[in-house]
Design a protein around this nucleic acid. Structure first.
Ligand SMILES: [Mn+2]
Ligand SMILES: [Mn+2]
Ligand SMILES: [Mn+2]
Ligand SMILES: [Mn+2]
Lengths: 215, 215
DNA sequence: AATATTTTTTAGATGCGTCTAAAATAAACT
DNA sequence: AGTTTATTTTAGACGCATCTAAAAAATATT
């Protein structure tokens, strides 16, 4: 499989993992910052290889083959991110771009040895699950902070947005995976929140609260 | 720089590092298992980027830019090989192909952090020198085992041939980097050797002896 | 020096992944 | 239902890296 094919597969995987439905050509083009015509070309090729179910004008979904292949790429991405943070002292906002490259390295042995070296982690630095060698994912149920009510609390276990900007904001506010977060007040006007993180109190917008996973 | 450009650069580096002279189109084609016409195309492109000195029909050599770029690729290759052996329990005959992929990952930070993580090694698992971040190489003088005379001895510090076949042969004979090797007898007929490795004695062909570096 | 051989370059083609522009189809709106 | 708009596909082009076949240049042989 080529570098490009792998990127399409991964994108389709991420776009379909929420909805479970077929995804449109335009949605893929949007996400990958490319043109719809390029997407169409690639979908034909992936369909030819039995990696996607593709019917003209009707969108696309992954076959079982495609889904497993996509999971293996996600596995590699997240294991490399974990390696970079745990072993090479990268911060969680610096790892994504490098992992985008590393996820395409082809070696079963490498990735499985890396997995062992890292102690078979089940989650990456952003709290996202790491598929095992067979593609199994441990699903932990988690809610968005924005769904909590006043006086409820929980532990921050993940981020939805993994952009560098957002992650740096969290660093600045000293919010990290494992932080205890409690809702002190919920502002009905703009749906912003007053929260307590550890011993500190701060105000966060609804957008922030909608990108933090709590357990 | 593209994946392909990097591979050409590295090949030219290896071919010129011994002779110091310009290298021929055919020599590059041979080494890279490609056609001379493809090489010519690439040489034009590399010359355009001031990475090689190329004059039609007269062979090619690296510019200072090209040499530094090549060294950085070699640096990455050898650091990754070291990582695979030291941290992921690969054996020295398994690392080359994976390192061929990993050497193209683009991230200054990654490679320098990896270097630190490994303790800034100066040699890779095959005894080859690892250029530092500025491209400096620590030259250690070493001779081929085949150049030694009867009753001389030394420590095995490197291999010239790094093919899997050769490395596996060495494993079988329990010859490794650091092994003490002494010449017991030199057969004038076929230039083969009787040697002692540690406490064992064995016969090796001249071809074997010509691929072991001794210090 | 002339001829033959080898090496290297050029010319033209192919596959991959991308693009723009135009055509086809589907969806939304009177 | 007919028309407009949006989405998707097709057609044709381009850059990259490769190839084969032919031409050009360098080298070796007689
Ligand atoms: Mn990522
Ligand atoms: Mn991640
Ligand atoms: Mn190697
Ligand atoms: Mn090596």
């Amino acid at each position: 499989m080529t570098y490009s094919e792998e990127n399409y597969l991964k994108t389709i995987y991420h776009l379909t993992s929420m909805t479970e439905e077929a995804v449109s050509t335009n949605a893929i083009a949007e996400k990958m910052d490319t043109k719809a015509s390029s997407v169409t070309d690639m979908l034909k090729k992936l369909a030819e290889k039995d990696l996607v179910n593709y019917i003209k004008y009707q969108g696309v979904s992954l076959t079982e083959n495609g889904k497993l292949a996509a999971k293996m790429i996600v596995r590699k991405h997240r294991l490399w991110e974990t390696f970079l943070v745990e072993k090479l002292e990268f911060s969680w906002d610096e790892v994504h771009d490098v992992a985008e490259q590393l996820e395409h390295i082809k070696s079963e042995k490498l990735i499985n040895k890396l997995d062992d070296f890292l102690g078979n982690p089940t989650e990456d630095p952003h709290g996202d699950p790491i598929p095992d060698a067979e593609g199994r994912i441990i699903k932990v149920e988690k809610r968005l902070l924005s769904e909590l009510e006043k006086n409820q609390s929980g532990i921050c276990v993940g981020v939805k947005d993994t952009s560098s900007d957002f992650l740096k904001y969290l660093d600045k506010q000293e919010i990290a995976l494992g932080s205890q977060i409690a809702i002190i007040e919920k502002e009905t006007f703009d749906n912003s929140f007053k929260i307590r993180v550890g011993s500190k109190e701060l105000m966060i917008s609804n957008k922030i609260a909608s990108n933090l996973y709590i357990q």
